[in-house]
Structure formats: C-alpha cells, structure tokens
Nucleic acid binder design. Structure first.
Lengths: 109, 109
DNA sequence: TTGACAGTTGAACAGTTGTTCAACTATAAT
DNA sequence: ATTATAGTTGAACAACTGTTCAACTGTCAA
C-alpha cells in the first residue's frame, strides 16, 4: 500500500537545483539574514562610510562592525578602501539594492 | 581630535529602517537562508506535494521536513491542506519565485 | 476495535553564529 | 621615538538552529 505519488516525485526531481547552486543561494540568504548586516548594507547604499562612522550610526563597537564587514567583504557585497587612518566601505554591487527592494515588497504586505 | 564625519552619520541616520521593518526583513532572509527550506520552496513551485513526497524527494525524514514546513507555514510562505491521510503543501505566494530569481541572478555572476 | 500509515510535536544534541574582550598592526601628529 | 587613534583579529561565550528520536494524534481499512 503506497500513498506517495512516485510520478510526481520523479517529475520534480530533475528540476531541483544542483548542490553547488543550492549552497550558494542559501549562503547568500544567510548573509542577508542578520539585522546588523542589513543595516550596514542599507547605510552604505546612502553613503560610503568608514568603520567608526558605521559603528556610531548603529551604536555598536568598531570590532563588531568590523567582523560583519569582513563577512560582507568575503561575499563581495562591499569593498574596502584605506585612506589615511580610515578604511572606507562601499557597496560593490548595486544588485543588493534590488534584492532588498524585492524582499521589502514581500514583507510589506 | 575627531576622524568621524558627524554630518554624514546624521544625514544617513533618518534614512535607516525602523526596528520593526528591520527585523521583518532579517527574519525573512533568515528563513530563506537554509538549503532544506529553499529546496522545499523550489519543489513546491513545480507541484503541490504531501510531506511523504517531499521527504522522498529530498531524501530526508518526514519529521525533519515537517519541522521546516512548519517554519515556512508560520511565515505564510506555504499553505497546508489536509486530504484524507495526507497533508498537501503548496506555495501561498508567488512572490517567493521572484525573490529566488533575483537571488539567482546575483549568485550566478 | 484493531492495526497500519501520514504527519506532528517537543526534548535533546551537536553545530553554527554574533558579540565581547584583549591583544595586535598601522597610520598620523607631536 | 612616543603617543593616540582607526581598524583588525582570534578566542571565548552565550544564544540560536536543524536534525534526530520517541511518543503522540488522526485517518482509513479490515
């Protein structure tokens, strides 16, 4: 006795994303799934800023901000540029704005 | 001696999202940031399916699948319908497809 | 009613994550 | 050279997350 429709399962199976794509996707969303990192991206969409400014804006320690910026940097979402004693961060990809707007549309319903 | 541009910070501050929106956004991304849940959404985009079919498709226990479906259900991303002994799940919102496609575009570069 | 199957639930466990802290490097000013 | 500031780093800690397991509910068939 079998209650599972094997045809459906076998029809859908080949349409599933391969492992690599799957993990790239979930890693991307994982990165966006933290309020601190969203705030950093949101802020950098307005203006490039240095670590101290971002820390002041978010009312956090420079260390905490730096750790999160590192995560965003290794995902190539932001880029860093050293000028004098400061390190200025900027969005490296305006794709981020689109994704944020898409999510906003979903959340604001 | 001050190396932080207060004007920049004060200019950006009012543009930041309020706390509620911020957490709604990060909660949404958190939900998408798991490969199991992405697979479930991806699969349900092709066909509504019951828990057993989804478990077979993803090669997971029904319990694990059920737990994740519950998370997706409380976020209103999927809806459940009981028919006989089975519970069939379907996407409740085709907005999800758009967000996934947006993220795909970002990842595939 | 009894048995079998579909699905749900909560506790427990291991693995992961974000912030803090202290130590560190690097740049600039005196 | 010395001092102060900007930022980075790694270890440690607590909080959170996803899967497993076992016990449970509900539905159908005999």
């Amino acid at each position: 006795m079998e209650h599972v429709d094997l045809d459906t399962v076998n029809k859908v199976k080949p349409k599933m994303p391969d492992t690599t794509l799957l993990y790239e996707l979930s890693d991307f969303f994982k990165l966006m799934g933290d309020s601190t990192r969203i705030q950093l991206l949101w802020a950098l969409e307005e203006n490039e800023m240095c670590v101290g400014e971002l820390a002041l804006l978010l009312n956090m320690t420079k260390s905490a901000v730096s750790h999160q910026l590192k995560a965003l940097r290794s995902a190539k979402l932001v880029k860093a540029q050293k000028r004098g004693k400061n390190v200025f961060y900027a969005l490296s990809d305006h794709h981020v704005r689109t994704v944020l707007e898409m999510a906003l549309e979903h959340v604001a319903e």
